[in-house]
């Protein structure tokens, strides 16, 4: 069973065992608008949680994507290089950014779960 956690910067991490799949939330893709480019990290690169790991661009905005948890990148979604629109169409599915091997599963406790994130979104408008 996988569990999904969220950051206040609207990244999500879906955890399967010791691997987390990272992307931006549906709310984030709507706010950004049509995504035109995603800059992905290199496989093997290690990040500390909160470090900039990727960049997502729409026509009028560029936004940093931060690693929600610490760890090394084990895979990136290179399909986004040719079809960045997948982020808009399916942010939490085909629009994932990269997979990271969790260095410290304890960090997940500091992130929001689904209901906490939904409550957080309500505070934004």
């Amino acid at each position: 069973m996988s569990e999904v956690r969220y950051t206040k910067d609207h990244e999500y991490v879906r955890v399967d065992g010791d691997t987390g799949t990272v992307g931006i939330t549906d709310y984030a893709q709507k706010t950004l608008g049509d995504v035109v480019f995603v800059e992905l990290p290199e496989v093997g690169k290690a990040f500390v949680s909160g470090e900039q790991a990727a960049v997502v661009e729409s026509v009028k905005a560029a936004s940093e994507v931060y690693a929600p948890v610490s760890g090394a990148v084990v895979a990136v979604n290179s399909a986004l290089e040719t079809s960045p629109g997948a982020v808009n169409e399916d942010a939490t599915g085909a629009g994932w950014f990269f997979r990271i091997k969790l260095a410290n599963a304890g960090e997940l406790g500091g992130l929001m779960d689904e209901s906490a994130y939904q409550a957080f979104l309500k505070t934004l408008d």
């Binding site: 608008g33 049509d34 035109v36 480019f37 661009e57 729409s58 026509v59 960045p84 629109g85």
Partner: peptide, 10 residues
Amino acid sequence: GRLDETRAAR
């Protein structure tokens, strides 16, 4: 008319 900037950038 309005131009498709997304297409231009993608």
